[in-house]
Simulated scan of single mutants.
Amino acid sequence: MNSLSSLYPAITALDLRSCLISQQGTLNFEYYRNQHTVTELAKINSCTKSILSSLICITMDKGLLPQSDTPITAFFPQLKMDNDARKQEITLEHLLTMSSGFNWTEFGGQKSFPLMTKSPHWTNFVLEQTLSDPPGAKMEYNSGNSQLLSAILVQTAGMSTARFAERYLFEPLGIETYNWEIDPQGIHTGGFGLWLRPTDMLKFGQLYLQQGTWNNKQLISRELLAQSVQPFISVDAPYRGSYGWHWWTDSVSDPSDMSSAPATQYFYARGYGGQYVYIIPSLQTVVVLSDDKPKKKQYSYDVFRQLIAPTLIHQQ
Rank of each mutant, 00 (worst) to 15 (best):
P238I: 15
Q110L: 15
L127K: 11
S6E: 02
A309H: 04
Q185L: 14
L7C: 07
W180F: 05
A309V: 07
W104S: 03
I152C: 00
Y266K: 00
W104D: 02
T117R: 12
W122N: 05
L79I: 10
R270K: 14
E166N: 07
W248I: 05
G190M: 08
K203Y: 06
M116I: 02
P198G: 01
I313T: 05
E30H: 08
A165E: 02
L173E: 08
Q284M: 09
S221P: 04
R86I: 08
D257R: 10
M258L: 09
L115Y: 03
N142G: 08
T285C: 06
Q298E: 13
K62S: 09
S99Q: 10
Q210S: 15
S5E: 11
I44D: 00
L16P: 11
K297T: 09
S53T: 13
Q284L: 10
Y243N: 07
D82H: 11
Y268Q: 04
L27F: 02
I182R: 07
N103A: 14
F76K: 09
Q185S: 14
S50C: 07
L169Q: 04
E176Y: 12
K62F: 06
L207H: 08
K297E: 15
W248K: 00
Q275V: 08
Y208N: 11
Q284H: 15
F267E: 03
I308R: 09
V229P: 11
L41R: 00
E40F: 03
A10S: 12
C19V: 04
F125M: 10
S256E: 06
F170Y: 03
S150A: 15
Q315L: 10
G191Y: 07
I279W: 01
F75G: 00
E93D: 05
P238Q: 07
S260K: 13
C19T: 03
N179G: 11
D15M: 10
L27N: 09
S18V: 12
E171T: 14
S150K: 06
L95T: 06
T123R: 13
S256Y: 09
S22D: 04
E30M: 08
N2W: 09
V38W: 00
H94C: 10
R17T: 15
D291W: 02
L149P: 00
A226S: 09
P184W: 13
G144K: 06
G205F: 01
S160P: 01
V154R: 01
T264Y: 05
P114L: 07
W122M: 13
I58W: 02
F304M: 02
Y178L: 11
I187G: 01
L95H: 06
H246M: 12
